[in-house]
């Protein structure tokens, strides 16, 4: 394992179903043994998707998402990138994407094995972009798919649910995106600039994990904070 590649403030999660994994505070997962980077729910071109319906949100969400992705890619230098589904907010997102952003994305893809996992928002391959569109990818002890499966799914890394966690300390409430994991499976935080979150205490998320071992790795400004499941608040 190449520790030199590990940026200082990421949290090392020694064991995810037997694989070493790094949880990055920007919301990316890195497997050093496989030089594999995972991001989930980019929801590129969400701004323009909403603009079509009359909400003229700033058209810079793709730019914001991609520049964060570029930073992470630059730091970890992965050989394989997995975009874990809902990479585009809708099926026309890739077509709508303004040229400068498309160029930025192409530069990231160039020279890497790039997997687009099909999501519910984007079941088809993104128009005009390289990379393989697949339903799932298996690497080592892990399998990557968009929607988490019910029941026991050891080694599953999924997205789709946009987990977020909330704590209350000293009369103040803090709500952040998070990685949710019990050591066997993991649900990724949404990476996109305009993506919201769903509280980990909601049953659809909570029931996926073994409660006693559940941790919310909440995304801080420059590191990830592991919080025990019992501390988390609904809402």
């Amino acid at each position: 394992m190449n520790l030199a590649a590990r940026p200082q403030d990421a949290t090392l999660l020694a064991d995810l179903n037997g694989e070493a994994a790094l949880l990055d505070h920007r919301g990316a997962l890195f497997l050093p043994d496989h030089r594999l980077l995972v991001v989930s729910d980019l929801h590129l071109e969400k701004g323009s998707a909403l603009a079509r319906r009359g909400a003229l949100l700033p058209p810079y969400d793709s730019a914001a998402t991609l520049s964060r992705l570029a930073t992470v890619v630059e730091e970890y230098r992965p050989e394989i990138v997995v975009s874990l589904g809902d990479s585009f907010h809708d099926g026309w997102g890739a077509e709508r994407m303004p040229d400068p952003f498309r160029a930025q994305l192409l530069a990231l893809i160039d020279g890497r094995d790039w997997f687009w996992i099909a999501g519910n928002h984007d079941p088809e391959p993104p128009a005009g972009l390289p990379g393989s569109t697949v339903r799932e990818v298996a690497v080592g002890q892990l399998v990557f798919r968009h929607e988490p499966t019910r029941g026991d799914a050891a080694g599953e890394v999924a997205g789709h649910l946009h987990p977020g966690a909330r704590i209350v300390r000293r009369g103040r409430s803090v709500r952040r995106r998070c990685f949710a994991t019990d050591g066997r499976r993991l649900v990724m935080p949404a990476f996109g600039a305009f993506t919201g979150m769903l509280n980990l205490r909601e049953r659809v998320l909570w029931d996926l994990f073994e409660p006693a071992r559940l941790r919310a790795h909440m995304l801080g400004t420059d590191r990830v904070y592991p919080i025990a499941g019992a501390v988390l608040r609904p809402g």
């Binding site: 704590i167 300390r169 000293r170 803090v174 904070y225 919080i227 501390v231």
Partner: peptide, 15 residues
Amino acid sequence: GEASDVLLSEAAGDL
């Protein structure tokens, strides 16, 4: 305060 990270850090300390 702005520093909600401090609060996160405390909660992580509890863990």
